[in-house]
Amino acid sequence: MLHTFVAQVEDRPGVLTRVASLFRRLSINIVSVTVGRSERAGVSRMTLVAEAEPGAAHRMKASLYKLENVLDVDDIGQTSCVVRELALIKVAATPATRSHIFELVEVFRARVVDLAPESLMIEITGVQSKVEGLIQVLTDSEDRILEISRTGRMVMRRGQHTSRVLEAMSAQNLDGDFVAGTKPRPDFMPDKSDLAS
Protein backbone atom coordinates (compact mmCIF):
# COMPACT_ATOMS: atom_id res chain seq x y z
CA MET A 1 0.00 0.00 0.00
CA LEU A 2 0.98 3.64 -0.30
CA HIS A 3 2.10 5.36 2.89
CA THR A 4 2.23 9.12 3.09
CA PHE A 5 4.37 10.96 5.62
CA VAL A 6 4.76 14.65 6.18
CA ALA A 7 8.13 15.31 7.79
CA GLN A 8 9.40 18.60 9.13
CA VAL A 9 13.16 18.53 8.66
CA GLU A 10 16.04 20.92 9.22
CA ASP A 11 16.74 22.98 6.12
CA ARG A 12 20.40 21.95 5.69
CA PRO A 13 22.55 20.31 3.03
CA GLY A 14 22.36 16.54 2.99
CA VAL A 15 19.09 16.08 4.87
CA LEU A 16 17.28 14.80 1.78
CA THR A 17 20.10 12.25 1.32
CA ARG A 18 19.66 11.03 4.88
CA VAL A 19 15.94 10.53 4.42
CA ALA A 20 16.38 8.89 1.03
CA SER A 21 19.17 6.68 2.38
CA LEU A 22 16.92 5.44 5.17
CA PHE A 23 14.28 4.26 2.69
CA ARG A 24 16.97 2.72 0.49
CA ARG A 25 18.23 0.75 3.47
CA LEU A 26 14.76 -0.55 4.23
CA SER A 27 14.37 -1.49 0.53
CA ILE A 28 11.27 0.68 0.37
CA ASN A 29 10.59 2.47 -2.88
CA ILE A 30 9.86 6.17 -2.64
CA VAL A 31 6.99 6.87 -4.99
CA SER A 32 7.23 10.63 -4.70
CA VAL A 33 8.85 13.21 -2.53
CA THR A 34 8.22 16.94 -2.51
CA VAL A 35 10.37 19.25 -0.47
CA GLY A 36 10.10 22.95 0.12
CA ARG A 37 10.18 25.66 2.75
CA SER A 38 7.63 25.38 5.54
CA GLU A 39 5.92 28.02 7.71
CA ARG A 40 8.94 27.94 10.08
CA ALA A 41 12.30 29.50 9.31
CA GLY A 42 15.06 26.91 8.85
CA VAL A 43 12.55 24.10 8.55
CA SER A 44 11.66 22.28 5.33
CA ARG A 45 8.46 20.36 4.78
CA MET A 46 8.76 17.02 3.07
CA THR A 47 5.81 15.03 1.75
CA LEU A 48 6.93 11.50 1.18
CA VAL A 49 4.92 8.75 -0.47
CA ALA A 50 6.30 5.24 -0.19
CA GLU A 51 5.12 1.81 -1.30
CA ALA A 52 5.33 -0.68 1.56
CA GLU A 53 3.50 -3.32 3.57
CA PRO A 54 0.59 -2.00 5.63
CA GLY A 55 2.49 -2.79 8.85
CA ALA A 56 5.64 -0.92 7.83
CA ALA A 57 4.35 2.51 8.87
CA HIS A 58 5.50 2.26 12.49
CA ARG A 59 9.05 1.33 11.56
CA MET A 60 9.29 3.98 8.86
CA LYS A 61 8.10 6.66 11.23
CA ALA A 62 10.28 5.46 14.12
CA SER A 63 13.29 5.27 11.82
CA LEU A 64 12.66 8.75 10.44
CA TYR A 65 12.68 10.10 13.99
CA LYS A 66 16.11 8.52 14.54
CA LEU A 67 17.57 10.95 12.01
CA GLU A 68 18.96 13.88 13.94
CA ASN A 69 17.71 16.39 11.36
CA VAL A 70 14.09 15.21 11.46
CA LEU A 71 11.99 17.35 13.77
CA ASP A 72 8.49 16.00 13.33
CA VAL A 73 6.85 13.16 11.43
CA ASP A 74 3.14 12.92 10.67
CA ASP A 75 1.83 9.65 9.31
CA ILE A 76 -1.06 10.65 7.04
CA GLY A 77 -2.83 7.31 7.04
CA GLN A 78 -6.51 7.38 6.27
CA THR A 79 -6.93 10.76 7.86
CA SER A 80 -8.92 13.56 6.35
CA CYS A 81 -6.60 15.73 4.37
CA VAL A 82 -6.21 17.68 1.16
CA VAL A 83 -4.02 15.96 -1.40
CA ARG A 84 -2.75 17.80 -4.44
CA GLU A 85 -0.39 17.21 -7.27
CA LEU A 86 0.71 19.69 -9.91
CA ALA A 87 1.59 18.55 -13.40
CA LEU A 88 2.86 20.36 -16.47
CA ILE A 89 2.08 18.53 -19.70
CA LYS A 90 3.43 19.56 -23.08
CA VAL A 91 1.33 18.22 -25.95
CA ALA A 92 2.00 18.35 -29.67
CA ALA A 93 -0.74 20.51 -31.16
CA THR A 94 -1.35 22.01 -34.55
CA PRO A 95 -3.94 24.70 -35.20
CA ALA A 96 -6.19 21.85 -36.34
CA THR A 97 -5.97 19.82 -33.12
CA ARG A 98 -5.81 22.67 -30.63
CA SER A 99 -9.52 23.12 -30.19
CA HIS A 100 -10.31 19.63 -28.87
CA ILE A 101 -7.39 19.86 -26.47
CA PHE A 102 -8.82 23.13 -25.19
CA GLU A 103 -12.10 21.29 -24.62
CA LEU A 104 -10.38 18.56 -22.63
CA VAL A 105 -8.55 21.16 -20.59
CA GLU A 106 -11.87 22.84 -19.85
CA VAL A 107 -13.46 19.59 -18.69
CA PHE A 108 -10.53 18.82 -16.38
CA ARG A 109 -10.43 22.37 -15.05
CA ALA A 110 -6.84 22.62 -16.13
CA ARG A 111 -5.21 25.59 -17.85
CA VAL A 112 -3.22 26.16 -20.97
CA VAL A 113 -0.17 28.16 -19.89
CA ASP A 114 1.92 28.21 -23.05
CA LEU A 115 1.11 28.07 -26.73
CA ALA A 116 3.65 27.48 -29.49
CA PRO A 117 3.07 26.84 -33.20
CA GLU A 118 3.54 23.09 -32.79
CA SER A 119 2.73 22.47 -29.12
CA LEU A 120 0.96 23.73 -26.04
CA MET A 121 1.55 23.34 -22.31
CA ILE A 122 -1.16 22.35 -19.82
CA GLU A 123 -1.06 23.02 -16.10
CA ILE A 124 -3.26 20.77 -14.00
CA THR A 125 -3.68 20.60 -10.24
CA GLY A 126 -5.57 17.94 -8.35
CA VAL A 127 -5.46 14.49 -6.88
CA GLN A 128 -3.42 11.85 -8.62
CA SER A 129 -6.40 10.26 -10.39
CA LYS A 130 -7.41 13.54 -11.94
CA VAL A 131 -3.93 14.16 -13.33
CA GLU A 132 -3.75 10.62 -14.61
CA GLY A 133 -7.22 10.96 -16.10
CA LEU A 134 -6.15 13.88 -18.26
CA ILE A 135 -2.99 12.07 -19.35
CA GLN A 136 -5.08 9.03 -20.24
CA VAL A 137 -7.57 11.02 -22.29
CA LEU A 138 -4.80 12.85 -24.12
CA THR A 139 -3.13 9.55 -24.92
CA ASP A 140 -6.42 7.98 -26.07
CA SER A 141 -7.20 10.88 -28.36
CA GLU A 142 -3.86 10.35 -30.04
CA ASP A 143 -2.43 13.66 -29.02
CA ARG A 144 1.29 13.20 -28.70
CA ILE A 145 2.50 14.00 -25.19
CA LEU A 146 5.98 15.50 -25.51
CA GLU A 147 6.88 16.05 -21.86
CA ILE A 148 5.35 15.54 -18.42
CA SER A 149 6.62 17.03 -15.18
CA ARG A 150 4.78 16.04 -11.99
CA THR A 151 5.42 17.27 -8.47
CA GLY A 152 4.25 14.17 -6.67
CA ARG A 153 1.85 14.30 -3.79
CA MET A 154 1.56 17.26 -1.44
CA VAL A 155 -0.59 16.73 1.61
CA MET A 156 -2.05 18.83 4.37
CA ARG A 157 -4.45 17.76 7.10
CA ARG A 158 -7.82 19.46 7.06
CA GLY A 159 -8.86 21.80 9.83
CA GLN A 160 -6.63 22.72 12.71
CA HIS A 161 -4.30 19.77 12.65
CA THR A 162 -1.13 21.53 11.68
CA SER A 163 2.10 20.16 13.05
CA ARG A 164 2.32 22.85 15.69
CA VAL A 165 -1.19 22.19 16.94
CA LEU A 166 -0.41 18.48 17.06
CA GLU A 167 2.73 19.18 19.01
CA ALA A 168 0.75 21.09 21.58
CA MET A 169 -1.89 18.38 21.70
CA SER A 170 0.60 15.55 22.12
CA ALA A 171 2.30 17.46 24.91
CA GLN A 172 -0.96 17.36 26.87
CA ASN A 173 -1.48 13.74 25.92
CA LEU A 174 1.84 12.40 27.18
CA ASP A 175 0.29 10.20 29.82
CA GLY A 176 -2.46 9.08 27.50
CA ASP A 177 -2.84 5.37 27.12
CA PHE A 178 -2.51 3.25 24.10
CA VAL A 179 -4.28 -0.05 24.00
CA ALA A 180 -2.38 -3.27 23.71
CA GLY A 181 -4.56 -5.11 21.23
CA THR A 182 -4.35 -8.65 19.98
CA LYS A 183 -1.96 -10.14 17.48
CA PRO A 184 -1.24 -9.77 14.68
CA ARG A 185 -0.72 -6.07 14.83
CA PRO A 186 2.72 -5.10 13.69
CA ASP A 187 1.82 -1.46 14.06
CA PHE A 188 -0.33 -1.57 17.12
CA MET A 189 0.82 1.66 18.67
CA PRO A 190 -1.65 4.17 17.31
CA ASP A 191 -0.12 7.41 16.40
CA LYS A 192 -1.13 10.15 18.78
CA SER A 193 -1.98 12.24 15.78
CA ASP A 194 -4.31 9.50 14.57
CA LEU A 195 -6.12 9.56 17.89
CA ALA A 196 -6.50 13.26 17.52
CA SER A 197 -8.08 13.13 14.08
Binding site: H58, R59, A62, Y65, K66, A180, K183, P186, F188, M189
Partner: peptide, 15 residues
Protein backbone atom coordinates in the same frame (compact mmCIF):
# COMPACT_ATOMS: atom_id res chain seq x y z
CA UNK B 1 14.77 2.52 23.99
CA UNK B 2 14.63 2.44 20.19
CA UNK B 3 11.01 2.43 18.92
CA UNK B 4 12.13 1.24 15.48
CA UNK B 5 13.12 -2.08 17.08
CA UNK B 6 9.56 -2.77 18.22
CA UNK B 7 7.97 -5.53 16.11
CA UNK B 8 10.94 -5.48 13.74
CA UNK B 9 11.90 -9.13 13.97
CA UNK B 10 9.39 -10.52 16.46
CA UNK B 11 5.86 -9.24 17.10
CA UNK B 12 5.39 -8.37 20.76
CA UNK B 13 2.35 -8.01 22.99
CA UNK B 14 3.45 -5.07 25.09
CA UNK B 15 6.08 -2.53 24.14
Amino acid sequence: IDPSEINKNVAVDIA
